[in-house]
Design a protein around this nucleic acid. Structure first.
Length: 396
RNA sequence: GCGGCCGUAGCUCAGGUGGUUAGAGCGCCAGACUGUGGCUCUGGAGGUCGCGGGUUCGAGUCCCGUCGGCCGCCCCA
């Protein structure tokens, strides 16, 4: 038998309902932020992700699905959404400021685990051409409101990498500082050279280090902006906590970075949404120098913590006592739908009334409409309430 | 990439120390009930025992490999 590939899965039933409930909820809330929706390709030139996410990140080094297409070009399945959106922003000549929202599957070849699949779904927004503390606050506020819209208890963890200069200064400081440390794990020895900031969120090495707060490297103006952002969020009652060691795994972040963690999910998979500012990315990808920030939420992971409940419309199920009334039953079926009702029936020949009733019951039908000799002769149809068993007559 | 547990019917799982035609519950189909679901009873369909080797007279059971699943680590949404 042919099965799905490792880490890939089919989504159906309640899982599918929850998925779309999440998407619809986000769509409603983001609509109030005046976002524009955009869909970009799942496959892009590999170079796009290498340049934006960062050559020496784990994502590019060991998680990206990368291969040659028939023309021998290096292409990749998108491991995240921002790169493609920024590419589209530049390529289509969007005029800043613009808020671009997206939803779709992302791909990373990690070891599958609960709430982590090789094809997973993200929904996110990019605020391109937006600068300053109010933009940062709007970005985080929109993310938090979306999560709250699902009635999920969550908390925002926030940090700043400072501007470009501060990030560089802090990085080179760390590089020197870490040179002495020979107890670092193998991964961190590489990070020390390629991306020293990443050492800070290594669970093994970080606790052993006493590193100065990045705030000491941030200039006064940036410090004021960050403080202002925090104030704005507090004003709008967003639960926030500063995490000085939060640095994120994608290289393009520059200023504030944040994660939203669910309080209903323990352990490693509780980060359900994350984002930050990436002021250098647009120019890095060939556009004009443009400030920007954004976030993305993991649908699969949110689905994990969502209380399942889906209201369904009342189902009308049409049954016939004999196949000779099939056409009439079929007409009624479509009339009901025209009236806006959810209606169904089975079409197999030779099914007893009893087995049709069983089917109606199994599908959770609220109403069963009978089509039999009496009904056809009189034009008055019997309808049964499947909850109470009461039957009444109606004419069409 | 590393570690632990696990792959038997559509689903959840039984199948001491290897021994005839591989079982149960649920689900599915049909009937009991010739115009009525749920409850009950009766019958039926459905299995390459993940896959490939090996040991053996004989493997669902033992050994090796491989693929896949769950969980943790790393990392991340």
């Amino acid at each position: 038998m042919i099965k799905t590939l490792r880490g890939f899965r089919d989504i159906y039933g309640e899982e599918w309902d929850k998925f779309w409930y999440i998407v619809e909820t986000f769509r409603g809330i983001l609509g109030r932020y005046n976002v524009r929706w955009i869909d970009t390709p799942i496959v892009e030139q590999a170079e796009l992700f290498i340049r934006s996410v960062g050559e020496f990140t784990d994502i590019v080094q060991k998680q990206m699905f990368i291969f040659k297409d028939r023309g021998g070009r290096n292409v990749a399945l998108r491991p995240e959404g921002t790169a493609g959106i920024v590419r589209a922003y530049i390529e289509n000549g969007f005029v800043p400021p613009v808020k671009l929202a997206y939803f779709g599957p992302m791909f990373r070849a990690e070891r599958p685990q609960k709430g982590r699949y090789r094809q997973f779904y993200q929904i996110g927004v990019e605020f391109i051409g937006y600068d300053g503390s109010h933009a940062d606050a709007e970005c985080i506020l929109s993310a938090y409101e979306c999560v709250r819209g699902l009635d999920v208890k969550a908390k925002v963890y926030i940090n700043t990498l400072g501007g470009d200069d501060a990030k560089r200064r802090f990085s080179s400081f760390l590089k020197d500082y870490l040179k002495e440390m020979d107890f670092l794990c193998e991964d961190c020895k590489v990070r020390r050279e390629k991306n020293p900031l990443r050492v800070l969120d290594c669970k093994i090495c970080s606790p052993k280090l006493e590193v100065p707060d990045i705030m000491e490297f941030v200039d006064e103006e940036e410090k004021r902006d960050f403080t202002k952002t925090l104030e704005l969020l507090q004003k709008f009652e967003v639960p926030i906590e500063r995490d000085p060691k939060l640095v994120r795994g994608l290289d393009y972040y520059t200023g504030m970075v944040f994660e939203i963690k669910s309080e209903e999910l323990e352990s490693a998979q509780n980060t359900i949404l994350s984002g930050g500012r990436y002021d250098d990315l647009v120019s890095e990808l060939g556009g004009k120098d443009t400030p920007a920030c954004g976030w993305a939420a993991g649908i699969d992971r949110i689905s994990l913590i969502l209380r399942k409940e889906s209201k369904k419309d009342e189902l009308y199920f049409i049954v016939r006592t004999s196949d000779e009334y099939m056409d009439i039953a079929f007409d009624i079926l479509h009339k009901l739908r025209k009236c806006g009702k959810t209606a169904d029936m089975i079409f197999d020949r030779g099914k007893s009334l009893r087995s049709q009733m069983k089917k109606a019951n199994k599908l959770g039908a609220k109403w069963v409409v009978f089509v039999g000799e009496e009904e056809v002769k009189s034009g008055r149809y019997k309808i049964r309430d499947m909850d109470t068993g009461e039957e009444s007559i109606f004419t069409i």
